[in-house]
């Protein structure tokens, strides 16, 4: 191992020597995940790292590091502090917006350098398969009949699941009891065990329980159906309930503030290559994630619009920091 590494080190140093060549990482890249191990963001970060390794796309490894403290605040503030660093990346989820808005930590996505968006995660309204509700309409009618008695399970507080629940409540004039859990997998299991009545889990978190006949998807929170074979029979919320409630979660990457332009270009290129591999595409299909690679100005525009959206939604739901 020692000799091998030393040799590899020499080779890399020699290879990196020619001046004027395009930027390349010269040391391991720290890949920050502002969430715990095993969640959706963590999975994608480790997948990207693994694909880069498998197809030899990066001369240096991407080392995944979890900094989940304070709903991701720890990770964001850490990367914010690494001004000009070209060897750090961070993968984000909706907590890019929700955490600073709710807790008031000194952070905004503009503190980071946008690199690319990889995918958008969908949300689906689920109920337990033993319940009599075959459609969203039936379920919502039942909730309306007995306000504040149906329990909606979700991940965390003042995060995407609760925002979505509040959107649904306000659009339809309902009231759920929102029960926060630590992670998406736990939420779906509590639905299977009948401890909550419904959830707004991401597809992948409930997929296996659905196939086993334990939970039932009622509607997708998107403007169009999911165009993947087994998911395409699920109606959109608009089709099922006549109101337009849609929400998607960002799976995108950022760098530290002031990351050099050459480095940003290199990472965009790397991530595009990762995105195009069959492994990554297969992951998107199986998890019913929306393929959505963008970079540059388009990415910035999307993030800006979504920041605005989150501010409005959270203000409406009374979730902004007081």
């Amino acid at each position: 191992m020692g000799l091998h590494s030393a040799l590899a080190l020499v080779l890399v140093l020699v290879a990196a020597a020619p001046a004027g060549a395009a930027w390349e990482p010269t040391k391991p890249i720290e890949f920050v995940v502002p969430a715990g191990t095993g969640g959706g963001a963590d999975q994608m970060a480790r997948l990207i790292s693994g694909i880069a390794e498998k197809h030899k796309l990066s001369p240096r490894p991407l080392i995944v590091v979890n900094k989940s403290g304070g709903a991701g605040a720890e990770g964001f503030l850490d990367v914010k502090g690494k001004k000009g660093d070209a060897h750090t990346l961070i993968i984000t989820l909706s907590n890019l917006f929700t955490t600073p808005l709710h807790t008031g930590i000194p952070f905004n996505w503009r503190d980071l350098t946008p690199i690319s968006r990889m995918a958008l995660d969908q949300f689906i309204l689920w109920v337990n398969a033993e319940t009599p509700y075959k459609t969203a309409k039936e379920y919502i009618a039942a909730v309306k009949a007995k306000p504040t008695s149906f329990k909606m399970g979700g991940t965390g507080s003042a995060q995407e699941d609760q925002i979505l629940t509040i959107q649904l409540e306000q659009a339809l004039g309902l009231k759920f009891i929102y029960v926060p859990f630590k992670g998406g997998g736990e939420v779906c299991v509590n639905l299977v065990g009948n401890h909550v009545d419904s959830t707004v889990n991401n597809p992948i978190e409930c997929a296996s329980h659905w196939k086993a006949g334990r939970v039932r998807p009622l509607a997708v929170f998107d403007t169009a159906r999911i165009p993947v074979a087994e998911w395409k029979d699920i109606p959109t919320v608009k089709e099922a309930l006549g109101v337009d409630v849609h929400y998607q979660m960002l799976r995108g990457l950022f760098g530290p503030p002031g990351m050099p332009k050459d480095a940003v270009d290199w990472y965009v290129d790397l991530l595009k290559k990762v995105y195009d591999t069959p492994d990554f595409q297969k992951y998107l299909t199986e998890g019913a994630l929306k393929p959505a690679f963008v970079s540059g100005a388009d990415y910035v525009k999307w993030v800006e619009e979504n920041e605005q959206l989150h501010m409005e939604l959270m203000a409406k739901g009374g979730l902004l920091k007081k």
Partner: peptide, 23 residues
């Protein structure tokens, strides 16, 4: 160094010496 940085890929705080060596 080899156990953490190379095998387990757990980055530790590094200083000027490691930077000079390109780690």
């Amino acid at each position: 160094f080899f156990i953490f940085e190379k095998w387990f890929l757990v980055p530790m705080p590094k200083g000027p010496l490691e930077a000079w060596l390109g780690q």
